[in-house]
C-alpha cells in the first residue's frame, strides 16, 4: 500500500532502505525518538547500564512475543497468553517442591504445561475449526480455573529454582544478561525457521491463503497446531523466566503481557491478517513497547494513563499501516 505511494521518493534511496518494510523503519524511528525524549528527562537514560537493563526487561516480552508472532503470521491470534505465562511459572515453581528431580525438571515441566495449553488451542483451531480468538479465550479461562484450584486462589508459596533465577538474572558472558542471550537464541532459531525451513514457508503460505496452501499439499492443520503449541510453550517459558526474575510466581503475572505482546508484533509491521511480517520488526516492536513502558514509569505515569496511552498508540499505529484493503 504505502510502498506505491512512497515509490517516487523511495527509488532515490539506497537499496537497503528501499527493500526494508516501512513499518519496521517507522518502529525503529520511534525507538530513536523515545530514546531522545527519555534522555531529556533523565541523564542516565542513555547510559549503557540502563539500556542493558531495558534490554533484559524486554527479553521476557520478546520470548512471549515470538510465539505470538508465529500465530499472528498464520492469521490467528493467541489470547491464552496471560494464563499460559502464569501456568508455566506456577507449574515450574510447583515442580521445584518435589525434591532434586523436581528441581531438575522444573523448567521443562513448566514449558510442557504451556505446550499442553497450546495443543488444546491448536486442536480447536486446526481440527475443530473454532475461531482462534474464541477457543484461546476459553482455554485461558480453563487454565485460570485449574491454577485457581491448584493454588487455592492465592499466590503459591513455592519459590523459583536456582536454575530459573540464573537464566533470568545471571551473567554467563560478563556484561550480557542471560535473559538477553536466551532471547537472542530463540530469536535466531525463529528467524531460521521462518526463512530457511519448509515449516516457515508453510506458515507464511497459510497466513496468505489457507486453501491455496492446502491445495499445494501442505498439511495445513498440522502446521497450525504446531504453531499454537510453540506459542503456548514460549509463553510458558516467558513465565518461567519471569518467575526466576521475581523468584516466585504470582496469580495475575501474565495479565500484563497479552496486550504488549500483540502490540509488539503488530507495531513491528506483521500483518494482523497473517502472511506478512519479519522477525526484525517484532524485535523493534518489543524494544519500542519496553522503552515506552520505561519512559511512562520514569515520568511516574499511573497505571490508568499507561493503559490509555497503550490503547491509543496501538490504534494509531494500526491506522497508519495495519488497515485492511478497502473492499472492492
Amino acid at each position: 500500500m504505502s510502498d506505491t505511494t512512497l515509490g517516487g521518493i523511495a527509488s532515490r534511496m539506497p537499496k537497503f532502505i528501499r527493500r526494508a518494510d516501512p513499518a519496521v523503519l517507522t518502529a525503529f524511528a520511534c525507538i530513536v525518538v523515545l530514546l531522545l525524549v527519555g534522555s531529556l528527562y533523565s541523564r542516565s537514560f542513555l547510559s549503557p547500564e540502563y539500556l542493558l537493563q531495558q534490554l533484559k526487561v524486554a527479553s521476557f516480552l520478546g520470548v512471549i512475543a515470538t510465539g505470538m508472532m508465529l500465530v499472528i503470521l498464520l492469521g490467528q491470534i493467541d489470547l491464552s497468553v496471560p494464563w499460559s505465562v502464569a501456568a508455566g511459572a506456577m507449574m515450574a515453581c510447583a515442580a521445584a517442591a518435589y525434591g532434586p528431580a523436581g528441581v531438575a525438571l522444573a523448567i521443562p515441566f513448566g514449558i510442557f504445561c504451556g505446550v499442553l495449553i497450546g495443543i488444546v488451542n491448536g486442536i480447536g483451531v486446526a481440527y475443530l475449526r473454532i475461531p482462534s480468538m474464541i477457543i484461546t479465550l476459553a482455554t485461558n479461562a480453563v487454565a485460570q480455573g485449574l491454577m485457581v484450584v491448584y493454588t487455592g486462589g492465592f499466590s503459591p508459596q513455592d519459590s523459583a529454582t536456582g536454575a530459573m533465577r540464573y537464566l533470568a538474572t545471571g551473567f554467563t558472558i560478563p556484561g550480557v544478561p542471560n535473559a538477553v542471550i536466551i532471547w537472542a537464541l530463540i530469536g535466531a532459531a525463529m528467524v531460521f525457521v521462518l526463512t530457511r525451513s519448509g515449516f516457515g514457508r508453510a506458515v507464511y503460505g497459510i497466513g496468505n491463503r489457507e486453501r491455496a496452501a492446502y491445495l499445494s499439499g501442505i498439511d495445513t492443520r498440522r502446521v497450525v497446531m504446531i504453531a499454537f503449541a510453540v506459542s503456548g510453550g514460549l509463553s510458558a517459558f516467558g513465565g518461567v523466566l519471569l518467575a526466576g526474575y521475581a523468584s516466585k510466581a504470582a496469580q495475575s503475572m501474565g495479565d500484563a503481557y497479552l496486550l504488549p505482546s500483540i502490540a509488539a508484533v503488530v507495531l513491528g509491521g506483521t500483518s494482523i491478517l497473517g502472511g506478512r511480517g519479519s522477525y526484525l520488526g517484532t524485535v523493534a516492536g518489543v524494544i519500542l513497547i519496553t522503552l515506552l513502558q520505561s519512559i511512562l514509569s520514569v515520568m511516574q505515569m499511573p497505571e490508568a494513563g499507561r493503559q490509555i496511552i497503550y490503547g491509543v498508540v496501538i490504534v494509531a499505529m494500526l491506522l497508519l499501516y495495519g488497515r485492511a484493503p478497502a473492499s472492492r
Binding site: 496486550l259 497503550y310 490504534v315 485492511a324
Partner: peptide, 16 residues
C-alpha cells in the same frame, strides 16, 4: 478505519 475487530477492541478496551 478498516481494522480487525479483535485487535481494535482489545486496544479500545484498554483505553476504556
Amino acid at each position: 478505519g478498516r481494522l480487525q475487530p479483535i485487535v481494535a477492541t482489545i486496544a479500545t478496551g484498554a483505553v476504556y
